Computed example of a mutant assay.
Amino acid sequence: MSDQVVKIFTSYAHEDEGLKDEMDKYLKVLKRSGKIDSWNDRELIAGQEWNEGIMNELANANIILLLVSVDFLASDFIWDKELAEAMKRHEAGDAFVVPVILRNCKWTSMPFAKLQALPRNAKPISEYADRDAAFTEVATGIERLVDHILLK
C-alpha cells in the first residue's frame, strides 16, 4: 500500500469528545507527514445524511479506532451500526480495529476484547498520572500500525 494514505475512522461517544479532540492532537504529526487521513462524525456537513455519511467513511477506513468508555458501550448507534460493521470488516481482514481505552468500564466481554488495545496493557487513559504519556503511547501504537499497513 506504499504511496497511499491510511484512512482512520474514529468511533466515539459524544460525551468523550474532549478526549477525542485531545487524542487528535497527538495524531496531528502523522497527519502532517501525509501518512494518515482521519475522520469522525464532526466532519459531516450541513444537509448530509449522517447515517449514510458515517457508514460510508467506516466502509472506507483502513483503521477503525474505538474510543472505549461507559458512554461508548451504552450507545445504541455505536453498538448496532458502527461496532457491528467494524467487527465485520475486521473478521474479513478488510480493516484493523483498535480499541483505545479512555475510561475504566466493563469492556472485557465485548466483541473487540480479543483485539490488542491501547494504551499498553489496556490501562485506561483516565488512570494515567501523566495524560501526555498515555496519548503519546496511543499515537506511537497507531503509527506502528500505519507503518505496517503502508509496507504491505
Rank of each mutant, 00 (worst) to 15 (best):
M1G: 15
Q4F: 00
V6L: 06
K7G: 00
I8P: 04
F9A: 04
A13C: 10
A13I: 04
D16S: 11
E17C: 08
E22P: 00
D24C: 09
K28T: 13
K35C: 00
S38N: 09
S38P: 02
W39S: 05
E43I: 05
I45T: 12
A46I: 10
N51D: 11
G53W: 03
N56A: 14
A59D: 15
A59T: 07
A59M: 05
A61K: 10
N62F: 03
I63R: 08
I64P: 01
V70C: 10
L73P: 14
S75D: 10
F77D: 01
I78G: 03
K81F: 13
E82R: 08
K88T: 15
H90M: 02
H90E: 12
A95C: 06
V97R: 11
P99I: 07
I101Y: 00
C105A: 05
K106W: 10
K106N: 15
T108L: 12
M110Q: 15
M110I: 05
P111T: 05
A113T: 12
K123A: 10
I125C: 04
Y128H: 12
A129E: 14
D130P: 13
R131G: 04
D132I: 07
D132Y: 01
F135C: 07
V138T: 10
A139V: 08
L145W: 02
L145M: 14
V146H: 03
V146I: 12
D147Q: 14
I149W: 05
L150D: 05
L151H: 08
